[in-house]
């Protein structure tokens, strides 16, 4: 067992001749809230896409709790314990809120039910369905979405859609949660609530969180440590105050 929940070694990817991300070395400890920041186009989401198997890294590799996950498919990586949310919310829009979470519970070993059992309506099908719904409701209650559970996902207001996406990601019982700009499009009040919620998720679910964010109040408010990316390379890393006062970082954000 490694000391770190997530460890990346020289992670990098090139699209043709373009080196989008090079030599990213992240070391995230358990129960840490780790920030990945950088100007637009720095390659932050590309790092997320590599960690979730959307892109295969061309150089380097990454480990979850010491297990190398590079080269796995997206669903396999999810089963191994990395769940994510998206910058532009991606819900199952035409499904109800509770069903969205139930899809997240699909691969849990305790809810295993073969196709044949479902088709023939054997007892296990009914038991699994009932238990999945119960578990989903518990999760929705934690996120304050229980009353809306039978609404279609796209009918939810923006803030609740964000919460539902996090609830769905947590339903897959991950060890590491990746949040891609969770505060995008939120007002200061909502951002403050979101910060409370992220801390709550860490404590309640014993979670380790890696997040991409542009909102500096959120970053400085909840992140334990930071890595700054600029043009695909690591500009700085370390604890929040040191990194944010680093002249290189200020220059990358504000220019000379």
């Amino acid at each position: 067992m490694s000391d770190f929940v997530l460890e990346t070694k020289n992670l990098g990817i090139s699209f043709g001749g373009l080196k989008a991300v090079q030599d990213v070395n992240l070391k995230i400890k358990k129960n840490e809230i780790y920030g990945l920041i950088g100007p637009n186009g720095a390659g932050k989401t590309t790092v997320f896409n590599m960690l979730t198997g959307v892109y295969q890294p061309t150089t380097g590799t990454f480990f979850l709790n010491g297990e190398e996950l590079k080269g796995n498919t997206q669903e396999k990586i999810n089963h191994k314990g990395i769940a994510r949310t998206f910058q532009n919310i991606r819900l199952f829009n035409n499904m109800t809120v509770v069903r969205n979470v139930m899809v997240g519970l699909h691969s849990a070993p305790e809810f295993k039910c073969t196709l044949l059992e479902s088709l023939l309506r054997l007892p296990r099908h009914f038991r699994v369905e009932r238990e999945m719904r119960e578990r989903a409701k518990e999760l929705l209650e934690i996120f304050g979405l229980l009353d809306e559970r039978n609404h279609l996902a796209y009918n939810l207001p923006y803030g609740k859609q964000r919460r539902l996406e996090i609830a769905r990601a947590l339903a897959t019982s991950p060890k590491l949660l990746l949040l891609d700009e969770p505060a995008a499009g939120m007002n200061p009040q909502e951002t403050a609530e979101l910060m409370d919620m992220i801390r709550f998720v860490r404590d309640h679910f014993d979670m380790t969180i890696l997040l991409i964010e542009h909102d500096m109040s959120l970053v400085s408010g909840i992140c334990d440590r930071l890595t700054v990316l600029n043009f695909g390379v690591t500009l700085a890393e370390g604890d929040v105050t040191t990194v944010l006062n680093n002249p290189d970082v200020v220059k990358a954000y504000l220019g000379d």
Binding site: E75, H79, F86, R90, N94, M102, V103, L115, S118
Partner: peptide
Amino acid sequence: SKHGRAITAIRDNEIAAKATGI
């Protein structure tokens, strides 16, 4: 059934379905 739910999830958002372990 849960399998049908996975199928409708793919219809609604394939990228999210993959990321959710379907």
